[in-house]
Design a protein around this nucleic acid. Structure first.
Lengths: 123, 123
DNA sequence: TCATTCGTACTAAGTTATTAGTAGATACGG
DNA sequence: CCGTATCTACTAATAACTTAGTACGAATGA
């Protein structure tokens, strides 16, 4: 059960759609993606095939087409992406990340309150 | 003055060394890098040449070799990497990022206090 | 002087990611 | 039944990234 290879940009883009849908066919994903940017149906299909090979999604036949479902919950995958990012960019410490966000005014007082609430709740 | 293309992994690795050193030759960077992992001198040189082409570093002749200096401060570059990451992974909102960090206990009460202090100081 | 060291420029190979086209099977509408 | 649409599998082309080798000039030192 080792975690799959990290998601590339396009892979992530498709996974986000799939997490939102919870499940979907190539066509489902394609129809959503094409609203944002030009992309070919077969491109989406290729990418979803790759996601399946890499273990990011499971698929089963559903009528004529495959129905794809995320293999791991969004939260877990995103968390490991954050870990990787923090490791690579900040040497593993989240503190300079949030400090930087605060200095650049990317965090509000409400965000702060929310963090405080979470830290209190999960002691 | 457009910001250069985003840093790739190896580029970032070298930039981190260069920001730490403030300036350095290929050999300086090479000697530090090779302590962490196997790498060829010419590989480091190639990468630093690419960093120069991309505008991430400046260089000038210093005796026989080139002396490289970062073109932009670490803080700015890292901040735009964070922006890109937050945009790509969290749709642009820093809140779910820090909330996730808090839930995963990657933030301490001290970190929280530091954020609070910064938000108060920069109103 | 002459071999060695150091540094650069140039070249190249291997990998991965991304995008999409083609061919063929299957289903479906009329 | 036949043409069209849909879906998959396979193939391909391009680009970027990473790594490192080769060639050659300049300096060094014995």
């Amino acid at each position: 059960m080792k975690p799959p290879a990290p998601l590339t940009d396009t892979e992530l883009e498709i996974m986000q759609v799939l997490w939102d849908l919870e499940r979907g066919t190539v066509r489902d994903v394609y129809e959503i993606l094409r609203k944002r940017r030009q992309v070919a149906y077969t491109t989406v299909m290729t990418m979803m095939g790759i996601l399946e090979e890499k273990g990011h999604v499971k698929r089963r036949k559903e009528g004529r087409a495959f129905l794809y479902t995320p293999a791991r919950p969004r939260q877990k995958v995103i968390a490991s992406m954050v870990d990787e990012f923090v490791g690579r960019v900040f040497g593993g410490s989240a503190r300079p990340l949030v400090v930087g966000l605060a200095k650049d005014r990317k965090l509000s007082a409400e965000d702060l309150a929310e963090i405080e609430r979470i830290l209190k709740e999960n002691p």
